[in-house]
Write a protein that binds this DNA or RNA. Structure first.
Length: 328
DNA sequence: GGTAGACCTGGACGC
DNA sequence: GCGTCCAGGTCTACC
């Protein structure tokens, strides 16, 4: 008999808002259904892949319905992955602290950022987002699942595990998943995870200094300043910005800044410094708010249409869309 | 420490 | 339909 788990989230948790808070919710194997307000995806668990559909019930409780039976150990594993993915470990008081630093997001309640069930998936997704337009990131993630992911009983495939990618040939990734020159870097990253050379508990430990984490991440293959900053926020460390071309577009079109990339970088750092250890959140929700002003509320985006349009060129060309009563 | 050029893919554009 | 150009972040070689 298929397993259903009941999960009690923090009081302020809102599934639609908190899933549709970061672009990875549009990437395979994630499927947000705007009509039913459910998140479906495949989790790779000890005993194999399992499809899950997550819905929030009227009282706030989350129900995770699987397409097969999970034993006790797998249930614990699934809970842990869902907790990471939905940032359920970010307490209401932490979100409130963010709002005290940046009150612009108090009304909407934004504070949590969606991520992947595992750090490995977040790292590989970040690599697929580097030096490429968003539609190619979508393609790479889809093909990685199709080619390398384990299928669940109901059909769809999981994101490939580190063990699977560590055994893959770079040529296979390049030819079948269209990852280009990222092929060998991805395999090397997977090997580092499998060999235990990426110490997740050290990276997650609040006692570990942000600077040390950033330095370590930048030493990994395929991870530069942007990717390291992005992985830090996916680790729940929001003190750094992840500056890319979208940041420069935001600086020019929304913040009214001007100058060379180096000048804009300095100006962006100065602009977000007052938000301290919440810098990334303040930056990101500004960016997200701009996207929503163009495309409507994120929880209404269809991954196959609206969800493919996020590149600086297309955003600059798109007309602004009116939204009912929004203030962040 | 700073910078130029290569890396690869897919989309836009011109013919 | 084909060829060319360009965007995108990281890495290496070089100054």
């Amino acid at each position: 008999m298929p397993t259903t788990l009941t999960i009690t989230p923090p009081d302020d948790f809102d599934l639609a808002r908190d899933v549709c808070s970061y672009g990875y919710f549009l990437l395979e194997p994630n499927h947000w259904d705007p009509d039913s307000a459910t998140l479906a995806r495949v989790l790779d668990l000890e005993g194999g892949a399992a499809g899950v559909v997550i819905v929030q019930q009227p009282g706030g409780t989350l129900r995770a319905r699987f397409d097969r039976s999970l034993d006790r150990r797998e249930q614990a594993e699934a809970r842990s992955q869902i907790t990471r993915m939905l940032a359920l470990d970010v307490s209401a008081s932490e979100v409130a602290e963010f709002h005290s630093v940046d009150p612009r997001w108090k009304k909407s309640g934004r504070g949590r950022l969606f991520r992947s069930p595992t750090l490995f998936e977040d790292v590989i997704k970040t690599v697929t987002s580097c030096n490429v337009a968003w539609p190619s990131t979508i393609t790479m993630n889809r093909r990685l699942c199709e080619v390398m992911g384990r299928p669940c009983p109901s059909g769809p495939r999981a994101f490939p595990t580190a063990r699977k990618l560590a055994r893959a040939k770079p040529e296979t990734l390049r030819a079948r998943c269209r990852v280009g020159y990222r092929d060998a870097r991805m395999v090397e990253l997977a090997k580092l995870f499998v060999r235990g050379e990426i110490d997740e508990s050290w990276l997650a430990d609040p006692a570990t200094d942000d600077e040390a984490v950033f330095k370590f991440l930048k030493s990994l293959p395929g991870i530069g300043p942007y990717a390291a900053g992005n992985i830090m926020q996916l680790l729940g460390r929001y003190s750094r910005l992840a500056i890319d071309t979208e940041s420069f577009r935001h600086a020019r079109t929304v913040l009214g800044m001007d100058g060379s990339d180096a000048e804009l970088t300095r100006a962006l750092h100065a602009h977000y410094d007052p938000f301290g250890r919440h810098r990334f959140r303040s930056y990101w929700f500004e960016l997200w708010d701009y996207y929503e002003s163009r495309k409507g509320p994120a929880h209404t985006w269809d991954k196959h249409t609206t969800g493919t349009t996020f590149t600086a060129t297309r955003l600059n060309a798109a007309p602004e869309r009116k939204r009912p009563g929004r203030s962040g």
